[in-house]
Design a protein around this nucleic acid. Structure first.
Lengths: 232, 232
DNA sequence: ACCTGAACACCGTTCAAGT
DNA sequence: ACCTGAACACCGTTCAAGT
């Protein structure tokens, strides 16, 4: 009894890091709707109120979670040229967003100025500087690539969600859907042609194809606009 | 008394359309956080439960609201060429998303197959068909343009939000922010250079410049990839 | 057919009170 | 310094009951 000294205050049960850990885990597992303060708290064997000692609001927690996953995006610094390097950065970014789909909505709703976000911006900018961009065009080029990544993943996630919904829907859904689609096809011939062609397709592979197509277009445009690369 | 006939059941207070009307109004005025079933209900002089006669869930209501504002996107069918026409469509889309910033998060979270979304897809596809695209490249080209619009608006809204936050923050914030920025600048030279150059800039004009820059890059890439336009 | 009113289960957040 | 427990104000949704 008296032999055991009082616990040092260092082995507290909570840390900001541990809280973000389980927040990311819950978000990955159950999406945005699954995250609640009480849920995170019980997962840590603690009351909801306790979290507010480490985090000001739930919004702040989400901001921390977003920056956490942004650390997963990586650039290969020893890439052979600016174009493959930039493409690799874009692909890594896309892969991360597909791993943590909830991160997209966070990106939409709140600005992120976390350390990992800034580090990521830095590597992108340096890459484009070496490629021969400067001034306002440098910002615009960086933005164009990022925009394509974000836009493409949003479209892919939405597409995926549509298919999931269609799968969930119970019996009796088939007829209504078929009727709706028939009507749509009648009114929208071009759309009907495309729907017929995309009937049996692997969504993920096709999404990747589209992503690469758009990226290539963009990089072509960028290549034409860069200044002469600075002499080494 | 007996002269006045019973009210015909037609003058009911609620309609799906009216409900969507006020939902869009509330969303425009107060954003995503301001919308609640009780809020919409009281705005219509009615109880929250009543809404569920016309709408299955709040999610359905948001879907309806999204399709409502998608109707605002318009394409000029009599445009001189495919490239200006496509650019005009993209700009109209962007303008709508900037008018209804809440629509972005909806676009992120849920698939939208409403009539206006489909009509919009149809006009885009026909435009690209006339431009000389077909098959999988047609889908990819359409997707690339849409992705750029969505991605660019997301970035712009996030940027805008950052500035607003910085404006709201009370006294004593300046020193902490300055310290943070100094640290960032020290660790990230390229970012520091860009931050210095972007010091006093009109966010909206600069966002538009970036949008047009990326769009031009993309259209260059698309122009190089289209097949020969079909003979008239 | 359409709407009310009350209830249910769940939120984020606060805060005195304990240790 | 750190955590509990209870409370507050607010959710989305359901449903018997009224008309």
């Amino acid at each position: 009894m008296w032999l055991r000294p009082e616990r040092p205050p260092r082995d507290r049960r909570l840390t900001r890091e541990r809280i973000v850990d389980v927040a990311v885990a819950v978000l990955d597992a159950e999406g945005h709707g699954g995250l609640s303060m009480r849920r995170v708290a019980t997962e840590l064997g603690v009351t909801a109120g306790s979290l507010y000692w480490y985090v000001r609001t739930k919004d702040d927690l989400l901001e921390l979670a977003l920056d956490r996953v942004l650390a997963e995006v990586s650039a290969d610094p020893g890439a052979p040229g600016w174009r493959p390097a930039l493409a690799a950065l874009a692909r890594s970014n896309r892969a991360m967003l597909l791993r943590h789909r909830w991160a997209l909505s966070e990106l939409t709703l709140r600005p992120n100025l976390g350390p990992n976000a800034l580090a990521l911006a830095e590597t992108g900018l340096r890459l484009l500087e070496r490629a021969g961009f400067a001034g306002a065009d440098l910002d615009a080029a960086m933005a164009a690539v990022n925009d394509h990544v974000v836009g493409a993943v949003i479209a892919e996630v939405a597409w995926h969600g549509t298919l999931e919904r269609m799968g969930e829907s119970g019996a009796g859904w088939g007829e209504r859907a078929a009727g709706y689609l028939r009507e749509v096809a009648a009114r929208h011939p071009a759309l009907a042609r495309r729907m017929a062609a995309t009937g049996e397709i692997d969504v993920e592979r096709e999404s990747e194809r589209r992503f690469e197509f758009g990226l290539d277009c963009l990089l072509d445009g960028l290549a034409a606009r860069r200044l002469a690369p600075p002499p080494p």
